[in-house]
């Protein structure tokens, strides 16, 4: 048991996976001697050698495509895209290939790869370095999309992603990389994919979030508790496929739901959750479902970034609105 930051937990999980399975290889820009620009792979090239920790040329299409080919032929590649903003060329390989191999060969060929990418804002990074485009990826049939909200989740979910027999996009909320630490046991135990986590039990409303936004969500839940409002907090963790049963059951219990994400509002992943509740839990709802999200704007540069990021205040406002709804 050790105190770890999220970046340390990710590194620990990568090392554990490589120790356990010689087919696990890492690749990406600057993942070798530099240890990754966020140091997720620090020390791994020294430990596992340059044939298993591969610095790639600057080519996102090839990083994803090589991972696809290698995965189909029995390796377990864990490829890194340096920032989510540079992942778009890789979507061709993900959508047209990684996500379809199993289906189009009727199970003869499969693609057990992981594509890791830091995402999200709030750290004053340059343009193209702060977006949250998880909904684009979640829209691709055949991909799993996972985003951890804490060091322990990162450890367990990354191990699960690497061991999963299908392609997984692992989105790391970089605002949390060093934002705090918690006890992580490097015991090789994976956390389940496709399962949400109830971070806090509550009776009055359900707040659903994932990744870095859980910090603000938890803060809001604390404040609401002070006002006598008991919020249940759900960390979705796996966005695709997400734990619909847990979200429905929670909302059917509380009757109210606020969904929080950093990504833009329109066609964001919150829309899927709200639609699911409308279809399956409508009669339990005591108030309309509210979304607290980023705006339908280009992610602003750092000087205005704080005005874009969903704040605790905005979450509180939405929570009070659903509570006061008559």
């Amino acid at each position: 048991m050790t105190e770890m930051t999220m970046i340390e937990a990710i590194r620990t999980a990568l090392a554990r996976a490589m120790d356990d399975d010689p087919d696990v290889i890492l690749m990406g820009e600057d993942v070798g001697i530099n240890g990754g620009v966020f140091r997720a792979t620090d020390g791994l090239i020294q430990r596992f050698g340059a044939s298993r920790v591969r610095d790639t040329p600057l080519s996102e299409t090839a990083i994803a495509g090589v991972a696809v080919g290698a995965a189909v032929q029995g390796l377990r590649p864990v490829a890194e895209i340096q920032f989510m903003g540079f992942l778009y060329p890789a979507i061709d390989q993900l959508a047209n290939h990684a996500a379809r191999f199993r289906n189009r060969t009727r199970g003869r060929l499969t693609c057990p790869m992981v594509l890791r990418a830091p995402y999200g804002g709030g750290i004053g990074a340059p343009e193209h370095h702060s977006e949250s485009m998880e909904a684009m990826l979640a829209h691709i049939p055949g991909l799993r999309v996972v985003s951890p909200s804490s060091p322990a989740k990162a450890y367990g979910l990354l191990l699960a992603a690497i061991r999963d027999p299908d392609p997984v996009v692992f989105l790391e909320p970089k605002r949390l990389y060093r934002a705090g630490s918690e006890t992580v046991t490097d015991d090789g135990a994976a956390l389940p994919l496709d399962t949400a986590f109830r971070l806090r039990e509550g009776a009055d409303l359900t707040i659903v979030g994932w990744g870095a936004m859980l910090s603000e969500v938890n803060e809001a839940a604390d404040q609401l508790a002070g006002e006598g409002i008991s919020a249940e907090v759900i960390d979705l963790a796996t966005l695709k496929p997400y734990d619909r049963a847990m979200v429905r059951a929670s909302v059917e219990k509380t009757g109210r739901c606020v969904i929080v994400h950093e990504a833009p509002l329109t066609a964001g992943f919150g829309a899927e959750i709200a639609a699911d509740l409308a279809e399956h839990s409508l009669t339990s709802l005591l108030a309309p479902v509210h979304r607290v999200t980023g705006y339908d704007t280009v992610m602003p540069y750092p000087r205005l970034e704080a005005h874009y990021m969903p704040s605790t205040e905005r979450i509180l406002k939405a929570a009070r609105a659903v509570m006061e709804f008559q």
């Binding site: 820009e29 600057d30 070798g32 001697i33 530099n34 620009v37 610095d55 040329p57 600057l58």
Partner: peptide, 11 residues
Amino acid sequence: WAISLRRQDQT
């Protein structure tokens, strides 16, 4: 250099 990647490892 491309960050930490040497020219000869780029191509």
